[in-house]
Amino acid sequence: MDVFSDPYNVDVYVTGFLWILKLTAASTVGALVLGVLLAAMRVSPVPVLRGFGAAWVNVFRNTPLTLIIFFCYFGLFSTLGFSVSDEIDLNNYWLGVIGLSVYTAAFVCEAIRSGINTVPAGQAEAARAIGMSFRQTLTMIVLPQAGRAVVAPLGSIFIALSKNATIVGTIGLMESSNAMKELINANGDAVIPIFLVFAGTFAVVLIPAGYGFGWLANRLAVKR
């Protein structure tokens, strides 16, 4: 494999996937926290919170991620003056994390909400009958059970997230899609091997990850 015998090219490849890894890691945390909060809002007794959650989901789920990342740069950073670092790469990285998090949170929220729907009503009714508040019912009874039911959908959401991380390339981060582009531009005759290596890396990591989540979901599933 000529292309990948050049250390510079290997470096481009490794750097690309390192960015993807870092983006995925930070955004997973961000999306999970935000998504749980949003789901709690959507089932809360306060109409404004419910409306806010619903609006969030509708706006972010229906907008292309490319545009959301774009707004992170030209809206959040450029216009609102939000900046994390003076270093371009680092700043773009965090802008990407924010974009990925707010986008993915919408999906996490919906997955959790439908997970809540799988918890039998009797559980919540019993909790209320013994005098638990909304918060207690949610955090002690419903969410733990719903959590088990959402492992599988969350798994696919986070797998999708790691693929979506490539879109942060639109604001210039040299993640793997830009890395692949660069290598293909410089080695036009080796398009196929380059693609196979990049796509293969994703496949080798994500296919087992998918099965892993499936296995976990089966193990954790509440038997009813």
């Binding site: 000529d2 080796a190 196929i192 091997p193 196979l196 290596v197």
Partner: peptide, 14 residues
Amino acid sequence: MALAVAACGGGDSE
């Protein structure tokens, strides 16, 4: 063929 190419390099297509 692509796999073979990937393995042994080159791959100039005429």
